[in-house]
């Protein structure tokens, strides 16, 4: 029995010691875990975007962040700060002033990606920017903007205002049903036809759309409305609407005159002009009314969702463009 106990003890010892390989001590990581050195641009972006707003601004090329089949290139280092300063002044500062300091902190894309050159499609059209799932916004042509030129800066800022509209909409819904009902039959995936931009705008405007792209769907329509309002001050915006109206009427007159025989007398020409004007005026007024109805929903959305007056926002955003280009 005693022997048996010894054997049992041996077995027990054997079992507990059998699978006891020596643990390796934890050593330093094999990977390079050093904090990368920050250059002046990195520090600036950190100070004005990443730390206050938790927005990462990526300007260095990163394969896979954009379409690999495209021929795109990163921005010039020296041009990053001037361009991002515009973004800060026109977008962040505007919303922060009216919506409160936390506005952008709470609702913002988490990444802004900069691409220096044009994103030119083989067909010759070009993409200015896009937003993915509210998480990131890609801005193209950052190398090409003259930061002192109002129209170039406005064009660039449009992209952000447009994409940010989507991000706001993803946080708090607008009245999509009501918005969609204003011009229900005008939406089309073929918004980019015909090829001529002026013709496209004529079609879109006459149907109650602010731009050609607004015809894609109600969400783009909303974003295009907001983008237009925030990049044109009150007077410019009114002028834009007046021009739409005048263009609808003049197009109708042109069409009427084209149908006249070449032998038409001045009286006949006058009569055709007047006839077309009389018919087209209510159509033009209707188109403007449709745009205004959309504008009302946008204004209402800002008031109810964020307690922001759209027209104050418009004034500040457009003033800030002027400030930014100084």
């Amino acid at each position: 029995m005693k022997k048996a106990n010894i054997f049992i003890a041996v077995i027990f010892f054997a079992i507990i010691s059998a699978c006891n390989p020596e643990e390796n001590k934890l050593t330093e990581s094999n990977l390079d875990t050093d904090t990368p050195e920050l250059n002046v641009t990195d520090s600036w972006l950190r100070e004005y975007f990443t730390i206050p707003y938790n927005i990462e601004v990526n300007y260095k090329w990163h394969e896979g962040r954009v379409d690999l089949d495209r021929y795109l290139s990163p921005p010039t280092l020296e041009k990053v700060i001037p361009v991002m300063d515009i973004v800060k002044q026109v977008w962040i500062d505007t919303y922060s002033e009216l919506g409160g300091e936390n506005f952008i902190k709470e609702i913002a894309p988490r990444e802004l990606l900069l691409v220096g050159g044009k994103n030119l499609n083989p067909s010759g059209t070009r993409t200015l920017g896009f937003a993915e799932g509210g998480k990131n916004i890609v801005l193209f042509e950052t190398d090409l903007i003259n930061v002192k030129d109002k129209s170039e800066v406005t064009m660039f800022v449009k992209t952000i205002q447009h994409e940010y509209a989507h991000i706001l909409n993803q946080q708090i819904r607008y009245d999509e049903e009501a918005f969609k009902e204003i011009t229900p039959s005008g939406y089309t995936s073929q918004w980019y036809n015909p090829a001529d931009e002026e013709e496209r705008f004529d079609i879109a405007n006459s149907q109650g759309f602010i731009t050609d792209y607004a015809r894609l769907n109600e969400n783009e329509d909303f974003a295009e409305m907001l983008e237009t309002i925030l990049t044109n001050n009150a007077e410019e915006y009114q002028e834009l609407l007046d021009n739409i109206k005048a263009k609808i009427i003049s197009n109708a007159v042109d069409a009427a005159l084209e149908n006249l025989p070449t032998t038409a007398t001045q009286d006949e020409i006058d009569a055709a002009t007047q006839g077309a004007t009389v018919t087209a005026t209510p159509e033009a007024e209707n188109a403007i009314a449709l745009i205004k109805a959309k504008e009302a929903i946008v204004a209402d959305y800002f008031k109810k969702s964020f307690n922001i007056d759209l027209y104050e926002l418009q004034k500040l955003a457009t003033d800030n463009i002027l400030k930014a280009i100084q």
Binding site: R70, Y71, P74, G116, G117, K118, L120, P122
Partner: peptide, 21 residues
């Protein structure tokens, strides 16, 4: 970041129409 080598990969900088994009 951009330098002269990127001019080879710029969709808008092409030798002729066949290379647009």
């Amino acid at each position: 970041t951009k330098n002269v080598i990127h001019e080879l990969s710029d969709s808008d900088n092409y030798p002729d129409e066949e290379f647009v994009g």
